Amino acid sequence: MFIRSERLFLRPAWPEDWAELHALIDNEAVVRNLSRAPWPYGPDDAKRFVAAPQGGNHPQFFVTLPGAHGARLIGCVGLIEDAGGPELGYWIAQGYWGRGFATEAVRSVLSLARPLGHRQINARHFADNPASARVLEKAGFRPTGEIRLGHSAARPQPAPTVHHVIDLAAPMDCDGPEDGGFEPMRRAA
Score class of each variant (00 low, 15 high):
Leu110Glu: 02
Asp179Gln: 11
Pro66Gln: 04
Pro130Trp: 11
Phe9Cys: 00
Asn27Cys: 09
Pro38Ile: 10
Met172Val: 10
Gly180Asp: 13
Asp175Phe: 06
Thr144Arg: 07
Gln157Arg: 09
Val106Ala: 05
Tyr96Gly: 00
Gln94Lys: 13
Asp167Gln: 15
His118Phe: 13
His164Asp: 09
Val165Asn: 00
Asp179Thr: 08
Ala113Gln: 12
Phe49Lys: 11
Leu34Thr: 13
Ser111Cys: 06
Ala29Ile: 13
Ile80Leu: 01
Leu34Glu: 14
Val162Leu: 11
Gly145Trp: 08
Asn33Leu: 07
Leu116His: 08
Ala153Asn: 15
Glu81Val: 01
Asp167Asn: 12
Ala23Arg: 15
Pro130Gly: 14
Pro184Glu: 01
Thr144Ile: 10
Asp173Gln: 08
Ser152Glu: 04
Asp128Pro: 14
Glu16Val: 10
Pro115Lys: 07
Phe9Tyr: 04
His164Gly: 03
Asp44Phe: 10
Ile92Ala: 11
Leu112Thr: 12
Arg72Trp: 04
Ala153Pro: 11
Leu79Asn: 07
Ala23Tyr: 02
Glu183Ile: 08
Pro143Asp: 03
Gly85Thr: 14
Asn27Gln: 11
Ala52Asp: 03
Arg155Ile: 06
Gly75Lys: 00
Pro12Glu: 03
Asp175Val: 09
Ser132Lys: 12
Ala19Gly: 11
His151Cys: 05
Thr144Ala: 14
Gln120Ile: 06
Gly42Glu: 15
Phe9His: 04
Leu88His: 01
Arg114Asn: 11
Ser111Met: 13
Trp91Asn: 02
Pro12Arg: 05
Asp175Glu: 15
Ala83Thr: 15
His69Ile: 08
Asp179Leu: 09
Pro171Asn: 07
Gly95Leu: 07
Pro43Ser: 09
Val109Tyr: 09
Gly98Ser: 14
Leu10Arg: 01
Gly150Ile: 03
Leu10Trp: 01
Pro66Trp: 05
Leu168Lys: 14
Arg148Trp: 10
Ala105His: 10
Glu178Gln: 12
Ser132His: 09
Pro38Asn: 09
Leu8Ser: 14
Met1Ser: 05
Ala159Lys: 03
Leu116Ala: 09
Pro171Val: 00
Pro40Glu: 12
Ala71Asn: 11
Pro160Ala: 02
Ile92Ser: 08
Leu24Gln: 02
Cys174Met: 08
Asp128Ser: 08
Asp179Tyr: 05
Gly70Met: 05
Gly181Asp: 01
Pro177Gln: 12
His164Tyr: 12
Val165Cys: 08
Ala189Cys: 06
His118Val: 14
Val135Arg: 05
Pro156Cys: 01
Arg134Asn: 05
Pro86Trp: 05
